[in-house]
Design a protein around this nucleic acid. Sequence first.
DNA 1: AGGCTCTCTCTTTTT
DNA 2: GAGAGAGCCT
Length: 742
Amino acid sequence: MDVTHILEGMNDRQREAVSSPLGNSLVLAGAGSGKTRVLVHRISWLVEVEDVSPHGVLAVTFTNKAASEMRHRVEQLLGISVRPLWIGTFHGLAHRLLRIHWREAKIPQSFQVLDSDDQLRLVKRVMKMLDLDEQKWPSRQAVWFINTAKDEGRRPRHIDTGGDLFNITHLRVYEAYEEACQRGGLLDFSELILRSHELWLENDDLLRHYQNRFSQILVDEFQDTNAIQYAWLKVLGSRAGLMAVGDDDQSIYGWRGARVEHIQRFSKEFQGVTIYRLEQNYRSTGNILKAANALIDKNQDRLGKRLWTAGEDGDAILLYAAYNELDEARFIAERTREWIDGGASPGDVALLYRSNAQSRVLEEALLRLSIPYRIYGGLRFFERAEIRNALAYMRLVANADSDAAVERVINTPPRGIGDKTVERLRQHAREQDTTLWRAANDLVADRGPADRGPADRGPADRALAGRAANAVKGFIELIDSLTEQCEGKNLEEIVRLAIDNSGLMEFHGSEKGERGLARKENLEELVAACGEFGGAFVLPIDPQGLPSQGTEDLLSEFLDHAALETGEHQADSNASSVQLMTLHSAKGLEFPLVFMAGVEEGLFPHRMSLEEPGRLEEERRLCYVGITRAMKQLYFTYAETRRLHGSESYNKPSRFIADIPADLMQEVRIRNEVTRPLSPAWEDDEGSLRLGQRVAHPRFGEGVVLNCEGHGERTRVEVNFEQVGPKILMLSHANLELLNDS
DNA sequence: AGGCTCTCTCTTTTT
DNA sequence: GAGAGAGCCT
């Protein structure tokens, strides 16, 4: 057989990895070393050379984007449909298993996937039921407790509280939450994996079936696996050949339970693991690589790896010290403009930052220079309120017993069903051990003396007041008629009916300002998305027998899709716009020109990570990921003062800058410029005073001018004094002495 | 019930 | 600075 096309154009290490024997292997693949390529070609190799049936191949990734890219490239290379291969994210694959084996997994066929927002809401409600003080017990913390436990494979019964009140309380929440999930047929993200893991452990035949079926397993981004995912792989892959591909230096999801140690554990716990190292980098210039290597060298816990390139050194890394975040943004936008004017595509440029909150000023600066851009992260499409509302109506059409959906839209748009009424429905549902939907129907249908509240409640609590009853009746009729009208309709028609009949479109569309318009557009986009969804999504039926129980309709499938595919908003490399994203979401991507903004102590490394050495190392790895995204030119920028979250902060340049050898870096100095137009008084009286100017004050000593605001007599300047820190002074009274730049 | 304002908190990263 | 929640007015 002619296999040259599979190994063509690869270096020796890549070739070895691709053609590795069928057993277990670990590929330590540095940034830009052709990792995805190796994975894709490995699959081809397995199928074409080793004669592995496509049925027998399972490939796991962490993001939906990586999964679809892999699917694409395998399809191209193999020239066959990838339908029989299982390629997906851990969550996607686990979900697929549970859809097939819901009975064995002891969950209702109509189970619903909870996304993080749903989860938070539910935890909040559970905590309210437990009468926990929200001040003392923040719900986010409880969510964190639950998710951490699940990510480590721990059910409530496995938890040892050690008599600690914190643990005891959260364990109670965990138990109650789990009960609520079980009752409502709700599975959160971690539950998908945990549950499918248990599914195998408790069903020998089933496990054996999948162990036999998947003879070859490939795992991407192995350094990102958490305990339960590792256990999942270990159970499934105990008899398979497993190829784990990862890079310990790019492990940036420790906060989500990922453990780099799984790389080491893998080579110990799996048999005969062959290790391959991909260290030749095809992406970045020599200088960029040197910087990356020097930086990551400061970390203690490493498997050890050194990237090299056969290419040129390239330009120095440029560093710009901005006066403030506006100046930083302006600088980045201007340099981007120059780059584009020089003939490059906007899509070649990435603006990376530590946290989403930084994106706004960058966005505004790009806007001013009319540079097309695209922001990733922040609120994703399916997380927007209007979209979630629409989905809730769609969910009610599919399954009116979904409490989460009823809670969400029973009074959205407002139709006269307030807290009191909903609380009464909840109470009734609890007493009758039924769903909100049924409780509502009950209470409206017969308001007889049947149900009695606790003795200490007044009679008014037992039934719904006339007005409320009518409102609830209206809601029930709306859903009933909607369901009826949706009968036999396609997905697009269903959303249309849902958003029009419910009044959502009108409600959101008439919200004040641009918001209303944006929401309306989003809803229209949802309609379009439903249109496209059509038949494109392949039903998760196991082609190897094991009958899938019950074919689901497209509507339920779409709702699952919306829950799992939270984004679709991962960067699109062929988009012709500047890409703004967090360092986390930049992993796996590459750009000729990269700006890393806000490289300041406290921001990056983030202040939340400063205490623990382990977390600091993770921040450094994050920086390493950022640096290695750059192909030709890399900029670091930081601001001496930054307005973030409503207050000013003064940060030192990040330690990461100092980690990089000075000879690789060059500082950009633009002295006689100011960041914003100065008021006339400012210019007239103090022509030579500018932002960044060094000044001396009789009392406070020396400092740097950070900002100015106000006009004429009332002009105020902000000066960061070396001795006493930042002060805002009235310019006319401050008596500042101008100093020369050093 | 709903809408308004005021106050408070929480500020990382995401499948 | 934004979003959530409480309190007050209609």
